[in-house]
Nucleic acid binder design. Structure first.
Lengths: 222, 222
DNA sequence: ACAATAATGTGAGATATCTCATATTTTCTA
DNA sequence: TAGAAAATATGAGATATCTCACATTATTGT
């Protein structure tokens, strides 16, 4: 984690305006941080001092269970807020957030502006919207995890995340996201190759039968 | 669904004050409805006209998947708001809500007060808290569903929902809540009986080895 | 540039959970 | 109060998914 210079900070603050989310001038309370790839923004069970607004980068929100399993709750992609639940005191301690790529974040000191934020209708309305959006996505993902085998969900995921006809995501991330073991993900991928829906190439997979994947994915969407 | 008389409504409005959630007088906008057991408060894919505040009763929030499976997202217990995401326009159409018991709700016409509510910091702050609380519960439930076999989750559920040493919930509801098939729930219950953690009696189960259940449940909590 | 670490890949065996079929009992409703 | 609907109960067989072990191949830090 590196605090950016005034110069650099100014650049980001100008290029990623967030004034629309507040009814007062938030810029005096903003510091800009850069997190390295793989760095933790929140450690699990810590109590955050900052509300973050990620403007560049990608991170994982996860929770570690007593038995050692890790549930990836969500991929966090910019732009987005982080630590808003903790700001609300809705949870005593935080979940973990670890960056996947180098990330740039605005950091807003909770101590300094908590009172102001929690009385600001502009901010609160945005936060309500943001929270319900997040909840809906999470709900959709989790209920689908429960209702459909990996075959369908993976087909859907491949279609969403492939670039043109090429799929190239890290298995280690995908299996966590889809809530299955690494082993099982590989099984189903192998099965897709057998059926020639996919063909291995270089470090990824070419979509050789998009229609078949669409059929599998279509069983989910409602 | 039955609209209560002025007389009855007055009684409920006095006994379940909600003025604390608003910075203006909400009572002129409140109508009181009674929903029968099993009745739908929101049909799936409908677009709600009212924001509800349930003061008595219990309901199920669910979603029906294309393949016919039903995911119970949450048990809704009073007091709670319903339809708040729709008020925010966060979702185009609603999930389904069906009462489990006869329920009494305050109904607030969205058309009449939407503008006022979305500019009311008192209401918005409460709503933020409410939404994040809900999200956290849902997240905890779903990640645990993924990370632990039914054995552990059921033990935990039995301890939470049993009255004294007696467990008596409807299997049909529990299996939906825990996200497993009816058949599998019965298997694990039978297994608990074999191990003599539980003993069947009347229409329910006596907890004959609470400690064993606690051990199983303790593997979850973090 | 090399050692350490992370990611990929595969096999074998176990198990958690599902589907479907069917029977009985309880509860609701007309 | 009888018939319908819902809830309980159990068996048999299938399958989706997991664990563990181990080998190979990238990627990364120093």
């Amino acid at each position: 984690m590196r605090k950016l210079s005034l110069e650099e900070s100014k650049h980001y603050i100008e290029h990623y305006p967030i004034s629309q989310y507040f009814s007062f001038d938030i810029t005096p309370f903003i510091q800009v941080y850069e997190f390295d790839k793989g760095e933790y923004i929140f450690h699990e069970h810590s109590f955050p001092d900052y509300l973050y607004y990620m403007i560049e980068g990608k991170a994982k929100l996860y929770v570690t269970h007593k038995n050692g399993k890790i549930s990836l709750i969500d991929f966090i992609t910019s732009p987005t807020f982080m630590g808003e639940m903790e700001l609300l005191n809705a949870e005593r301690y935080s979940k973990g957030i670890q960056t996947v790529t180098t990330s740039i974040c605005f950091a807003i000191s909770i101590r300094e502006v908590k009172e102001k934020l929690l009385a600001d209708p502009v901010f609160l309305k945005m936060l309500c919207l943001f929270l319900s959006q997040k909840t809906m996505n999470a709900t959709a993902k989790y209920t689908q995890n429960q209702a459909y085998p990996l075959e369908n969900r993976l087909a859907s995921f491949i279609l969403l995340s492939s670039d043109q006809q090429f799929y190239k995501e890290k298995h280690t991330e995908v299996c966590e996201y889809l809530g299955v073991s690494y082993r099982h993900l590989l099984f189903v991928l192998a099965h897709f190759c057998e059926e020639e829906y996919l063909t291995k190439k270089d470090r990824g997979y070419v979509l050789t039968n998009r229609q078949a994947l669409e059929k599998l994915a279509s069983e989910i969407t409602y």
